[in-house]
Amino acid sequence: MAENSTDPRTGPPAPKSRAQQSTRDLLLSMLPLLLVLLALTGLVGMCSFSPGGPSVDPDVGARSDPDGDLRRAVGSVDLAVREPDLSEDWRVNNVRVSQLGDRGTVATALRVGYLTPDGRYLRLSQSDAEEAELVAFETGVDPAGLGTVEAAGLTWVRYAAQRDEEAWTTELDGQRVLLTGSADEPEFRELAEATVAGDLVEPGAGTATDGG
């Protein structure tokens, strides 16, 4: 019977080196980060870049009944506001009422956010606040005038805003109207014209009369 023999060159495999173990641990620790990056890549794919400002999907967050939202909001404030006469390519994504001021003097602003046909954002604010107060509130910075512009038969004062945006403001119907957002100048002009030409909605009643 043959005797069992052991080849000194064979035996259990040598343990992995410290470098190999470190590489494996590093790959395992990076796995959750890779999963997060993949998820973020999917979200980024839903957005697009526009040289004129952020671009968003016009169907995201659009209101199903913008006229009704506006009139219900007007019914809760003591303001007569214009209802812009815009095409269906403009989508309303929010309507809100905000209070401005302190020290016993409180103003009201009815604010309507729009997604433009090119997917940019533009907000219309109509308020009984003073110009400087409304500009600071809507732009988030101290008022810094950039000159004036003529639009819809009115003179609008231009102000700097955050993120290289700007704001236009004028007086209409005895109160302050302000536009601000990432839209380009033609879109500012379109909303300005639509606002001036829009119906005048009386405070509280939620009814409209012809604009002019």
Rank of each mutant, 00 (worst) to 15 (best):
T169E: 05
G113V: 09
L172Q: 08
A167M: 06
A208M: 03
D102T: 10
A161S: 13
K16I: 10
D173G: 02
R82C: 05
L33G: 08
P54R: 07
M46C: 13
R189Q: 10
G212N: 10
P203W: 10
L124F: 13
P117N: 04
R71W: 02
D142W: 10
M30G: 03
V106G: 14
D65W: 12
A62L: 08
V201M: 06
L124Y: 04
G11Y: 05
G53Q: 03
F49V: 11
F137R: 05
N4W: 11
A73K: 04
A107H: 11
G11Q: 06
L37V: 10
D25C: 02
L79M: 07
Q99W: 13
G145N: 05
R111D: 15
N4M: 10
A152Y: 02
L86E: 06
D210A: 15
S48R: 14
A19P: 00
G11S: 06
S17Y: 01
P51G: 11
L124M: 10
D65C: 11
G147N: 08
D65E: 14
R71A: 07
L28A: 14
E185R: 15
R158V: 06
A14K: 12
R111K: 14
P143N: 08
D184N: 13
A19H: 09
A152F: 06
P143F: 13
E88P: 07
N94M: 13
R18I: 11
L27P: 00
R163V: 04
G75D: 05
